[in-house]
Design a protein around this nucleic acid. Structure first.
Lengths: 110, 110
DNA sequence: ATACTTAATCGTAATATTGCAATAATACAA
DNA sequence: TTGTATTATTGCAATATTACGATTAAGTAT
């Protein structure tokens, strides 16, 4: 069916999955890394930086924006995109929560 | 086209994306959380715990196994699945590396 | 051997994702 | 206004993902 049965999972599970899903494409990782490095960006730079067509980059930017990882400001003809630092921290915390119950104990799988 | 152009990205970007992609489904998050909680598991439990059909769970387990998050031991008629603690730690480190260059500086998007 | 249990695999339908050409929209410049 | 530059949207083709019924495989029990 291709459709995820979100309703049977907890909010936390859906939230973690939603964030991870957006991070689940190398182009979006590349965009994030680039934005983190230069701290601000014009979309056109990304089209040159990453080897994908402009509409494709635009689409990836939209998804990053949807989950709040980046935000954009219109600056004349171009758009300035950058990491939303507050949300970025929240996302880090959310992802870390998945690892918090981790431990070293050996289990049945040896 | 539905096919990711992995070849134009760095190994690091592809690795992070691959891990994140597997974490990008609430059923797989639920499975991980369950395994972390009880520290060992028989697959049948998961079918009851999570509300998905047995083949679907089996498929999700396979993907988790592919990226090394879990491992399984055959125990008689059933299979014991659990978190691969070493890989799980590596995965945590890999994902966290994405956040290492994060900072507080205000940028052009205010 | 036969029946039962458990998990993997196969096949398939429905839906989602990725990527891009073409086009539209927006802001600025001459 | 007309042209130019930049980004968003639309439409579409190719492929991937999700889910599950049916079946298979492999072990256990009777």
């Amino acid at each position: 069916m291709g459709v995820t049965k979100s309703e049977i999972f907890t909010d936390e599970q859906n939230t973690i999955a939603k964030i991870a899903k957006v991070l689940g494409h190398p182009a979006r990782i590349a965009i994030i890394q680039h934005l983190l490095k230069i701290e601000s960006c014009i979309c056109g730079d990304l089209v040159n930086e990453i080897g994908l067509a402009q509409p494709t980059i635009s689409q990836h930017l939209k998804e990053l924006k949807n989950v709040g990882i980046i935000k954009g400001n219109i600056e004349g003809t171009s758009v300035c995109y950058c990491i939303d630092n507050n949300n970025w921290k929240t996302i880090q915390t959310t992802l870390l929560s998945l690892f918090s119950s981790s431990n070293n104990t050996e289990n049945c799988c040896g």
